[in-house]
């Protein structure tokens, strides 16, 4: 189900796939965590990070599959992250019985790296101004055309195109700077 390739046969629409994965998996994961010594808020936080990692892996070709495969993939990552959280809690003094918790079928080294990268991506996004976020949201998430966006914010098509370019370059610069700082530390 998960394989590395530079060919991506599926063309998922972020809005639809994320919506489905969220709606189908969050209630399940809240029940799963509740049964395994966790709270609803812990479930929500871990779910958000797990869905994010799954989505990034889909976008960069580390996960390839249809929508139902993606839902299953999100569940595996959620289980992995919850197991990790339980182990972490155990290290800090809670005595937990992990014998009943199902072992997830995912590659842990790759996922650890992905969760680390997610944190850097979060911080890179936070460095962008609201206008940049609006422009990138309109292009990549809402899939608005150049013309629709230029009309809605009252500037020329060329200005919008340039702003998209500059906003993405800023995001890239912030990301690379954080990665370099992280590697130097």
């Amino acid at each position: 189900m998960t394989s590395k390739t530079d060919l991506n046969p599926v063309k998922p629409t972020a809005k639809e796939w994320l919506e489905t994965a969220y709606a189908e998996n969050l209630p399940w994961f809240e029940r799963y965590v509740a049964k395994n010594s966790g709270t609803s808020q812990e479930a929500k936080d871990i779910f958000q990070d797990s869905l994010s990692v799954a989505w990034i892996n889909l976008r960069n070709g580390k996960f390839v599959g249809i929508e139902s495969d993606f839902t299953a993939y999100v569940r595996q990552i959620c289980k992995y992250k919850w197991m990790d959280e339980l182990k972490r809690k155990g290290r800090f003094g809670h005595s937990l019985d992990l014998s009943g918790v199902e072992e997830p079928q995912v590659e842990s080294g790759e996922l650890e790296e992905a969760f680390g990268d997610l944190d850097v991506l979060h911080r890179s996004m936070s460095s962008l101004g609201d206008k940049c976020k609006t422009i990138l949201n309109s292009f990549y998430f809402l899939k608005q055309s150049l013309q629709e966006l230029s009309q809605s914010i009252g500037v020329t098509d060329q200005s919008v195109k340039t702003m998209k370019y500059r906003c993405m370059n800023r995001l890239r610069a912030a990301y690379l700077q954080l990665i370099n700082t992280h590697e130097e530390a």
């Binding site: 969220y22 989505w55 960069n60 990549y140 998430f141 993405m168 690379l176």
Partner: peptide, 17 residues
């Protein structure tokens, strides 16, 4: 690979907002 991650990050930011 970098652009794929950044694009995914913008989609996720919009979705969770």
């Amino acid at each position: 690979a970098i652009q794929q991650k950044l694009m995914a990050a913008t989609e996720l930011d919009s979705f969770f907002k």
